[in-house]
């Protein structure tokens, strides 16, 4: 029998020290909505669990540089109830709120969703589209890394041994800009994205698209930032022709697999549909955000 140790320190320094001193598999516990399921089904048997929910920095949302710093362990329900955050980044908030049921929303966190490194994670495409940056603590101190650079493959991250994501910073949203996230699931709830699409776009004073970031989820080993799809929008009006180009560019970028949740062919087709629909929502938001 393997004994498991549980620690819930009050500071990030203590977390780093605990991880550094641990031998064998150690895991960070934020909401636990992935970790506990993985433990229950025997996929992981950690020797040490470090709960980060007692740490203020990891559990609060604060305004910073016109944007927001969201603690890695802040739960989806709290994100959804943050009026200012929701106004600035409705797509990110929607994505966070899509994770799991009402009960799961009281636990599931952005940090957990990111570090679980599922290609189908709902919040990750929206965070990447928003240009979010993580604050990471580790044995060598702090570093800042774009969210896009965390996941390296299914279940795998670029985090070094003993490193922990402490918070995620969302920049100030530009004027005349809007973001949106849509996912496709066969049901209405309690499911995992077959395809996800996040769009963050900005309009110039003439209503032409001046900047865009298009990110697809569940169609490759990690969330895909598709610059060709963004280029389809930038420099002109977001009209039907632009949306058709976006649709085609999204489909062309997909590298999905066949699995129990959907076929590669189906995922590819739906990625274009979702990108187009998400762009429509982002456009409306950008227009009303001037």
């Amino acid at each position: 029998m393997n004994a498991m140790r549980y620690e819930a320190p009050g500071s990030i320094d203590e977390v780093v020290a605990l991880l550094a001193a641990a031998d064998g598999d150690s895991r960070i516990l934020a909401g636990g909505t992935d970790l506990l399921v993985q433990m229950q089904s025997g996929f992981v048997k950690p020797g040490l669990i470090v709960d980060v929910k007692k740490i203020a920095e990891a559990t609060t949302i604060t305004a910073e540089d016109g944007g927001f710093r969201i603690g890695a362990a802040v739960c989806g329900a709290e994100i959804g109830e943050h009026a200012d955050l929701k106004e600035a980044w409705p797509g990110v908030v929607e994505a966070a709120e899509l994770i799991g049921s009402v009960q799961i929303q009281a636990r599931a966190s952005l940090g957990g969703n990111l570090c679980n490194a599922s290609p189908a994670a709902d919040s990750v495409p929206a965070l990447i589209a928003a240009g979010a940056v993580c604050s990471i603590a580790g044995p060598k101190g702090r570093r800042e890394v774009p969210v896009a650079d965390i996941a390296t493959g299914p279940g795998e991250t670029s985090l070094g041994t003993g490193e922990v994501v402490v918070s995620i910073h969302l920049p100030a949203q530009s004027p005349r800009s809007g973001d949106a996230y849509l996912r496709f699931i066969p049901r209405t709830e309690m499911d995992i994205a077959v395809v996800g699409a996040a769009i963050n776009l900005s309009l110039d004073e003439n209503g032409q698209c001046s900047a865009a970031r298009v990110v697809l989820g569940a169609v490759a080993p990690t969330a895909l930032l598709v610059t060709e799809a963004a280029d389809a929008l930038i420099g002109g009006p977001v009209d039907d022709a632009a949306l058709e180009r976006l649709d085609a560019a999204a489909r062309a970028a997909c590298r999905p697999i066949d699995d129990k949740r959907g076929t590669a062919d189906y995922r590819t087709k739906v990625s274009g549909v979702l990108a187009r629909r998400a762009a429509g929502i982002a456009l409306e938001r950008a227009r009303s955000n001037s």
């Binding site: 066969p186 049901r187 209405t188 709830e189 309690m190 499911d191 995992i192 129990k260 949740r261």
Partner: peptide, 11 residues
Amino acid sequence: FLDYRMPVASD
């Protein structure tokens, strides 16, 4: 029940 997709109430 995650991937054996029975309808949920909202469906």
